[in-house]
Amino acid sequence: MKILVPVKRVVDYNVKVRVKADGSGVDLSGVKMSMNPFDEIALEEAVRLKEKGLATEVVAVSAGVGQARDTLRTALAMGADRAILVETSTDVNDDLEPLAVAKILAKLVETEKPDLVLMGKQAIDNDMNATGQMLAALLGWGQATFASQVDIKDGAATVTREVDGGLQTIRVNLPAVVTADLRLNEPRYVSLPNIMKAKKKPLEEKKISDIGVDITPRLQVVRTVEPAQRSAGVKVGSVDELIEKLKNQAGVI
């Protein structure tokens, strides 16, 4: 079984982001970037499937700026066998829309012919939560999103999904798209010897023009604003006062 794992280079989750002065988005120049945490979880799962002897090859792919090469190197150090970069832009502030990414991935699936695409349920930058679903639709494959457990057996994946109010277990025939949720696993730390070994693993680079996919944006960002500042709390003197405030001021009871 061959697994394709798409990984996205996103703002590191520790970074306090800043909105650009013109409100067109978040300022990404000079900001620390890393692998999207949900993609890390997907990759960890793929590597575990390989370690269990259920997968034969794990291929990490990324689309975006050339710097996504670093993200792919991390993927190789985590255990991917090889990597493919599709360079779509040279401007670090450019972002691809889910449909564009899904189309690029669909093209790669055509040539790579994986049995499973295992990816993060969403990227932590835009929180779109759409690429996996769109990819499955474009390919005409089954999909299992928000996975918290994945079992592969007899050409099918039994996937436990984290849904509102509980867990749902479904079975999808392979090939399929599975998207990883937070509790699927805890990704490993990359070891120093594996960082060294990753240097020797193949990283293939393609240009978007080689792929022949239209990535023209369909969406227009109207406005980006910082979250409202939280105002300070109030100390109340008694339970009665608390109830009064909850009723009349906050209007929650």
Partner: peptide
């Protein structure tokens, strides 16, 4: 370089 950055990263998160 890129590799040293990776080593820094993995060590930092472990630390």
């Amino acid at each position: 370089n890129e590799v040293q950055e990776q080593v820094l990263e993995t060590t930092r998160s472990f630390v």
